[in-house]
Design a protein around this nucleic acid. Structure first.
Lengths: 187, 187
DNA sequence: GTCTATAAAGCGATAGAC
DNA sequence: GTCTATCGCTTTATAGAC
């Protein structure tokens, strides 16, 4: 049984958790119905496009969160070293120190990716570009900044995979620490 | 339509490709039937346990390949630097420069993981331990060797995720190169 | 050993009462 | 706006002919 949620905006976070924990295909409408406390009729009232629209809404919400909490701060002027530490803290909090999966990364590996190719790509591209831009403002040359940004994203995603596979949260925490340290040495 | 394969051993690679390209849930029996050219009756003759047994057989085959081509060479005595280069080459070839997904990593992110927890964990643990042991023989202290090994695995898995998400094979190639370089600087 | 036919269950999605 | 009932389809798995 799930919570009672009044509007579409309140449903999206529950959908996101369902997709994260069960996978997009594994989160059937009956699972979603149980978790949200809403009947299928209500779900289709909020999302006439069905699961496809639910997935798109969840990806949009994730992108909006990162835009506000991670990308925008990176783009804002400010101490680069402080920005890196803030990014690390936000990422660690969001992924609950590795206990939470990155839905966008999971979609990318799965063939669910082919249903939301633009949203998956844009999420990572926006993150990479925001981080690379910040590094450039900190004095790093453009090609090196871009490579370092890609490397940081790889570190986050890889740490999530290995952390889940080994079932060891420390793997994620240590990986994030190395990511932060490597970015710091560039500045 | 698929190839005609005579025995169970010949079917497993086709199953692996089906799971990689469609995901474990997305690779339905009808898809598998088409790709292997075998009817459902034949498939259940080879794998009485159904998809569960197919998944386990594929994971076992992947583990066997890496055991022979990656883990064992790492455990064998020999020049550590040459061993690192050989590992990089084997990994790059196996994942087809990023165009192929790591099924074990995909299972780890998806909740399919809960169906094969031991096999997913053992694959990464064996890789990490073989690599860490090789680094130790090269003179790296045990804790640093283990961390470097975990970091290398993170690099591979993260590069596969980002490469797929951005649809850019160069992301994988560059990530592997950084992995190799970082391991080299330890020796 | 391989096939076709079929069973039983679950899926996403819809209709219509309230 | 929310529910229940139901549609049509696909799923995994089995049975039985050959």
């Amino acid at each position: 049984m799930g919570k009672a949620v009044g509007d579409r905006g309140g449903v999206v976070p529950l959908l996101a958790e369902a997709f994260r924990e069960c996978g997009f295909e594994g989160a059937s409408l009956s699972v979603i119905s149980q978790r949200t406390g809403l009947g299928k009729g209500s779900l289709y009232n909020f999302f006439p496009g069905g699961k496809e629209e639910m997935g798109a809404a969840v990806l949009a919400a994730i992108d909006a969160w990162f835009e506000a909490e991670v990308f925008a701060p990176l783009r804002a002027a400010g101490d680069p070293r402080a920005a890196i530490t803030a990014m690390r803290a936000a990422v660690d909090a969001y992924f609950r120190s590795g206990r939470r999966v990155c839905l966008v990364g999971a979609f990318a590996l799965d063939n669910v990716r082919e249903r939301f190719p633009g949203q998956v790509r844009d999420y990572f591209a926006a993150w990479r570009d925001a981080l690379a831009g910040m590094l450039e403002r900190g004095g790093v040359a453009a090609p090196e900044a871009r490579e370092a940004a890609e490397d940081a994203l790889i570190q986050v995603q890889g740490a999530l995979v290995l952390c889940r596979a080994l079932d060891d949260p420390e793997v994620f925490t240590a990986g994030l620490a190395r990511m932060e340290q490597r970015l710091m040495t560039l500045l």
